[in-house]
Amino acid sequence: MTQSFFEWMQGLSFSAWMLEETWASPIIQCMHLVALVAFAGAVLVVDMRLLGRGLIKTSTARLARELDRWMIWSFVALFVTGAPQVLSTALKQYYSPFFWWKMQIIVIGLVFTFTIRRRVAFAEEGTLGHWPKVVGVLSIGIWTSVSVWARLIGLLS
């Protein structure tokens, strides 16, 4: 079922166009990387604040509120530029364990970011003990592992 879905994606005319058009993949990959940098920055500034580092003179809630839209829109850009890459190399992705690990961790990361991390970031300062630090470390760990698995899809698959 899953394999046939990936075979269907690989067989789309868009996938063929992506592979045949010389500049399509490089341009999309470059845009993906720029979006990754924006996403990493938006996440890191808040995570570092949760860890008691970085912009400590500004409240975590204010930073999180301001950087939320940057995080969301850069993730949308990551998705929009990532999907064509998956479509055009669907079978390579299907057979890569790193792709599946990446997808699983992205789902965990999204659920974590929009539930626990959001609640902790928007909570009143000093009311949650060590939880902000735990959440900051987990968030950095989750999103770092996503970029590690992503890089390894291209290198080791």
Partner: peptide, 21 residues
């Protein structure tokens, strides 16, 4: 090569991400 390139990308996120903001 995979280790160096992956570390290169992750450290780029730390550096370029913060500089971008």
């Amino acid at each position: 090569y995979p280790t160096l390139l992956t570390t290169h990308v992750v450290s780029m996120c730390l550096f370029a991400g913060l500089i971008a903001f």
